[in-house]
């Protein structure tokens, strides 16, 4: 599963690179527009260790941000699952909050919280929590009647049991959404770093852009892709193992 993720990414990345180089040589473009393979390789040798460390920094923020957003989405999803006024209020509030584009909110976050770790974390969590919330609300507000009926009619139903039943019945869906949201958390962190932070791969991309250095950006994309593939692969594996263990 993990290996498949990595080689799938490598195929896509190399195809993209190949496409760029074909365009470069077909149109006789200079290295300034599209860098040549030697320059890309040299840049890779020079910057890969530093970018790898940057991407690890970004990934660690993304992972924590994703974890927070999972907790947040599950909490709101659990509250919002109820067909009560409060449940619907929570859902509407959560949806409205997400309606504001993150690039509009991010500068406010950075001004209020500074350009450090917390701002990056918050933005990462904000970006990936909404799809999670949608899935969790969808899953949690859909009764599994054929299981829940017994507990309801015998008066044994508790909210914890209800959440457990619905989560269990939709475990594959949940793990897929969580694995998918890793991409969003990573993208959110990178956007945050790109806008205002002082660390991480997004910040490095920003500097590479200042320097019009496309090879550095290609190397950055490579490190992002590889690390994200590994992380997603690990999440999928964890999901698979949880599924296997819980479902027997």
């Amino acid at each position: 599963m993990l290996l498949r993720r990595i080689y799938q990414f490598l195929i896509i990345y190399l195809l993209g690179l190949f496409l760029l180089l074909v365009i470069k040589y077909a149109l006789n473009l200079s290295d300034y527009v599209i860098p040549g393979p030697v320059e890309i390789w040299e840049t890779c040798r020079e910057t890969l260790p530093r970018y790898f460390s940057d991407v690890m920094d970004t990934l660690s923020v993304a992972i924590i941000g994703q974890f927070i957003s999972i907790v947040l989405a599950i909490s709101i999803g659990v509250i919002g699952r109820q067909a009560t006024w409060f449940g619907s209020f929570v859902k509407v509030a959560a949806y409205n909050f997400q309606a504001y584009p993150i690039v509009a909110i991010a500068p406010i976050v950075f001004i209020l919280l500074g350009d450090g770790f917390i701002s990056r974390l918050l933005i990462a969590a904000m970006i990936c929590y909404f799809p999670l919330l949608l899935s969790v609300v969808g899953i949690m507000s859909e009764p599994i009647s054929d299981i829940e009926h017994f507990y309801r009619i015998t008066g044994r139903m508790r909210w914890q049991l209800e959440v457990k039943i619905r989560a269990f019945e939709n475990l594959s869906k949940l793990t897929t959404v969580i694995a998918g949201s890793a991409t969003l958390a990573m993208a959110g962190t990178i956007v945050a770093e790109f806008i205002a932070a002082n660390a991480g791969i997004g910040y490095s991309i920003r500097i590479a852009l200042y320097q019009s250095n496309l090879s550095k950006i290609l190397v950055a994309l490579f490190t992002i892709g590889v690390s994200l593939s590994v992380y997603q692969g690990m999440l999928e594996m964890a999901g698979y193992m949880i599924n296997k263990r819980w479902k027997g």
């Binding site: 200079s30 290295d31 300034y32 527009v33 860098p35 320059e39 320097q211 019009s212 250095n213």
Partner: peptide, 8 residues
């Protein structure tokens, strides 16, 4: 930078 990368 562009000149150093051969841009015309």
């Amino acid at each position: 930078r562009a000149l150093s990368k051969g841009a015309p």
